[in-house]
Design a protein around this nucleic acid. Structure first.
Lengths: 242, 242
DNA sequence: CTCCCTATCTTTACATCGTAAAGATCGGAT
DNA sequence: ATCCGATCTTTACGATGTAAAGATAGGGAG
């Protein structure tokens, strides 16, 4: 809308021409104040600003709207600026996914802290997992739906690793046994895979609306969270968990 | 490669100029033979040919390479031809997903038929589920990873519904109780959600390579299939399945 | 204090993609 | 035999990712 003109792609091109020098007055104390001064032109916190802009675009327009150019527009810089900081789209998505993993891990850790009873301790992580995904479906999509992620990037590798470590640790505490970092028994691996698969699968199906067929057949007013609880705690009737 | 010329986008443009009439000899008995005659020009089985072309492109170039224009190229028609049959990219993806669901359902049904012991019966569907996804990761991605699917299309709705019905039925047999079509108890819903979530989550994590951290820590030579078996059958140590 | 170097950002350019609209082409009904 | 409508092609447009060259400013060397 009103963006048909290809010349007005960047938000600040309106103040560009005829301003070669003496522009110091227009952005006072860019660095002295700390960071956020509305116009991080040259030298500033563009990288951070781009990540925050990407998060806004993601929440506003979803995964499909998250493009390099859209992020640049949101941040008010030229469309090629992000490339310099992230290399390519994969780079931006990977760094954003790292941000998401850190939020995600923090949310689960915080939820575990407030749990008291054994039942609460068992359910705190899964519930926080699903709750985060429901509150930030775009972020969760970046982390678990996108194919374009580069796990060789240290920030992403580290954040994802921390997430896995938190899970393995929680399972270890639940089984009251130490889970060493370099070796697992088949039963230990199965327990971790079961917990992760169940919660991750539930979340994906829920976000994709594929659990509606179940939810609408359950007793009136049963929420997804209640179904999750039942799934995690209900007695296993058949001989196998499946 | 050698495709820089924008005029040669369609594979058969080489035989286009100077061939206004009398082209009947070039495609003999297009319809009389049945269908596949290499050149379904006008009136033929283009729709089916496009779906098959899409499947080839998907297996060859993955999800990222599956574009309307690539499918048209593969089928040897102009880049706008698919639009007439599928409306837009969402339409093509949805119809292809329907094809995938039918293959998927057939694979699971066939696996169930050959099972004899109770243990085999319990594991046949999950194993076939994961095996299909591993054999056709692109198709599985179309079905469960893509956001652009239109479930209001009858073919897709029907195929996906059949998949869910097969699952619910299998769970019902496992619990030795009839699962009616219009109402579920919380425990029944939880059992279905648990089975589906576990297998779907396992598959997604496996395809994304996220189970490598577990697999490489397991005893030497443990395969993903073995881990799946253990996950589905290993005794639950803690008080809750999680 | 002045000048130049380098990181940062902008401009320009190009191939590809999805999609719309208009033109060409053939099969079959009248 | 002729015309209509479904099918396919051409042409066109805006958007995107990415590469390459030009502009700009901050900070160190003299």
């Amino acid at each position: 809308m009103a963006k048909t003109d290809t010349k007005s792609e960047t938000a600040r091109s309106s103040r560009a021409p005829g301003r070669t020098t003496s522009t110091a007055a227009s952005r006072p104390a860019r660095r002295a104040t700390g960071a956020k001064t509305e116009t991080p032109y040259h030298h500033g916190a563009l990288r951070e600003a781009l990540l925050q802009a990407a998060e806004r675009v993601l929440e506003r327009d979803g995964l499909a709207g998250l493009t390099l150019r859209a992020v640049a527009r949101e941040a008010g810089v030229s469309h090629a600026a992000p490339t310099h900081h992230f290399g390519d789209l994969t780079g931006l998505l990977s760094e954003l996914a790292a941000v998401g993993f850190r939020q995600f891990n923090a949310a689960m850790a915080s939820a575990c802290d407030t749990a008291t009873t054994p039942l609460e301790r068992a359910l705190a992580r899964p519930k926080a997992y699903v709750a985060y995904a429901q509150a930030h479906p775009g972020m969760y999509g970046i982390m678990f739906r996108t194919e374009r992620l580069d796990y060789s990037r240290p920030s992403l590798h580290e954040a994802a690793e921390a997430s896995f470590a938190g899970l393995a640790n929680a399972i270890g505490m639940m089984r009251q046994e130490q889970i060493s970092g370099d070796a697992l028994t088949l039963n230990q691996g199965a327990a971790i895979a079961r917990a992760w698969s169940m919660v991750h699968g539930f979340t994906m199906l829920l976000l994709d609306g594929r659990l509606e067929d179940i939810l609408e057949r359950l007793p009136e007013g049963t929420t997804a969270e209640r179904l999750l609880e039942a799934m995690l705690t209900a007695p296993v009737t058949s001989k196998f968990p499946v």
